[in-house]
């Protein structure tokens, strides 16, 4: 049985900065990382490999340089790493991204039965949380989002029981396999690659599937298959605030000024 982890290579958005003159992103030297939530998805697929003998497959759609991310997955212990890369996949929104990923999973399903597809709950660059549900709906898999614990996996009955983390509550849900599960960080603690695995992964093969392999209608992938598009990007507008007093030399005076201002503007009820 297969367990698939969908992972994405993303720019480390915590290190992105804006050029104050041109108002564009300064991209030079920004490192690419595995989307942090996806590393938990990857870890969970490796745990199923260890505990239940599943074959673990890492899957990523991206430009050719995303191979680095898939190589890391091999170093961590996945059995296969597959990069879905083609010019026609470029410029995709979440709808056309899930189309490509689902088609790849469908193709894997022709070779072996799929048990679970794991995705991170969202990416840190897009923040949409839409690709996981997109894959589930396209494949007809049970959809379980925001999972922070796998309670039980019953392969005889083909069910999985998970705990979902929602606002102010948890839900214990039992569902039929195959399932698409999106994971939160509390689910597990990702492992580190061992030195021998890392060395072995340098020589291992990352498979690359382009659209000649997936044979999707070019109008359903990439930019052409994306109903949404970005019409404008701009820097967030901010109004200049007011610095009160000299807080370094006279902190008490500055505090008094602040309270006075809040009272003046009727913001404080005392």
């Amino acid at each position: 049985m297969l367990v698939v982890a969908c992972i994405k290579q993303v720019p480390d958005t915590t290190q992105v900065q804006i050029d104050p003159v041109t108002n564009t992103l300064i991209r030079d030297g920004i490192p690419f990382i595995v989307n942090p939530y996806d590393s938990h998805a990857l870890e969970e697929s490796l745990r199923l490999k260890d505990s239940n003998g599943f074959t673990a497959v890492a899957l990523s759609m991206g430009p050719p340089n995303a191979e680095a991310t898939l190589r890391k997955a091999l170093a961590l212990g996945v059995d296969r790493s597959i990069l879905l890369s083609d010019r026609v996949f470029g410029g995709a929104d979440t709808l056309s991204t899930s189309n490509v990923l689902a088609a790849a999973i469908q193709r894997l399903a022709e070779q072996d039965e799929i048990g679970i597809v794991f995705c991170g709950k969202q990416t840190i660059d897009g923040d949409t949380a839409q690709v996981g549900p997109g894959i589930a709906v396209r494949l007809g898999f049970t959809q379980l989002t925001l999972v922070d614990r796998i309670e039980k996996l019953d392969l005889a009955k083909k069910t999985v029981t998970v705990r979902r983390k929602l606002e102010g509550r948890y839900e214990i849900v039992e569902a039929r396999l195959p399932a698409m599960i999106t994971v939160v960080r509390e689910l597990n603690r990702p492992r580190y690659p061992t030195v021998p695995m890392r060395l072995a992964s340098a020589k291992a093969q990352v498979e690359v599937w382009n659209n000649e392999v997936l044979k999707l209608d070019v109008n359903s992938v990439g930019l052409k298959g994306s109903p949404t598009w970005v019409s404008r990007i701009f820097s967030p507008q901010r109004t200049e605030g007011e610095i009160l007093g000299d807080g370094m030399r006279d902190p008490v005076g500055a505090a008094l000024l602040l309270v006075d201002r809040l009272l003046e503007e009727d913001l404080l009820a005392v």
């Binding site: 007011e242 008490v252 505090a255």
Partner: peptide
């Protein structure tokens, strides 16, 4: 400070207790 309506450049360990004290005084006075 770019998003702040009001800012105080200072040590929070001095400023925050001063704020607390001032609001407490005002409340007691009322």
């Amino acid at each position: 400070f770019e998003v702040a309506t009001f800012g105080i450049v200072g040590d929070l360990f001095d400023v925050v207790p001063a704020l607390t004290m001032r609001i407490r005084e005002l409340k007691q006075a009322r």
